[in-house]
Design a binder for these strands. Structure first.
Length: 197
DNA sequence: GGATCGATCGGCT
DNA sequence: GCCGATCGATCCG
């Protein structure tokens, strides 16, 4: 069986973790079945100085998980209907995380389709809220530790993506100051069919 | 206590 | 391309 990524992987510089998460496999155990996908798009959010980061106004109940230990999930609710999944990075006390924005479905495609209104596989997880719907990720996972064996959500070691296939660009849908708007902190796999937007 | 708006999505023009 | 859905967190008074 493949190895669940450990805390050491996440306890590093957020941009490094974001870049290296490309190609890894996000796995959700649901009703005895594996639902999984290859991570093809992510974004980094780093610290209270990052005006696009949810921690820009300091610690609140909503964003508390971002201040927690690396390797834990930060799941938030937006637009009154959607959930998005982040993985916390760096050291405890520093609010930073990587938003998982898109997956290429690998296992449990039928189960994902059932949760996504029967859509084609390219539309199952090609967006941060879509992948949460496909993998049944909601606030129950906010603060969950993805590095311990009994949690039904984790990231597995898998082949990485060569530098030549990685594109970096500005983050999607963010507001904030000029620095936040232009920071090339979105990373995605060039030519993937499952990117967001 | 009330107003505003969001790290989105899907349907419609 | 644009707009409505839908609600909780945050901010202002």
């Amino acid at each position: 069986m493949m190895a669940r990524l450990g805390r050491d992987f996440f306890a590093r510089d957020t941009l490094t973790v974001a870049r290296e998460l490309l190609g890894r496999r996000l796995v959700r155990l649901l009703d005895g079945e594996r639902l999984s996908g290859r991570i093809v798009e992510v974004e980094a959010y780093v610290g209270e100085e990052d005006q696009a980061c949810h921690a820009r106004s300091g610690r609140t109940e909503r964003n508390a998980s971002m201040y927690g230990p690396p390797g834990c999930a930060y799941v938030y609710f937006v637009y009154g209907m959607h959930y998005c999944l982040n993985v916390v990075t760096e050291r405890e006390g520093l609010p930073a995380a990587v938003l998982v924005r898109a997956l290429e479905p690998l296992e449990g495609v039928e189960a994902m389709q059932a949760r996504r209104g029967g859509r084609a596989d390219v539309e199952l997880a090609s967006g941060p809220a879509r992948l949460c719907q496909a993998l049944a990720i909601d606030r129950q996972f906010d603060g969950a530790d993805l590095c311990v064996p009994d949690v039904d959500l984790f990231i597995e070691r898998a082949a990485g993506v060569p530098d030549g296939a990685v594109v970096a660009g500005p983050r999607i849908g963010v507001r904030g100051d000029e620095a936040a708007l232009v920071a090339p902190w979105r990373f995605y796999v060039r030519d993937s069919r499952c990117l967001s937007r």
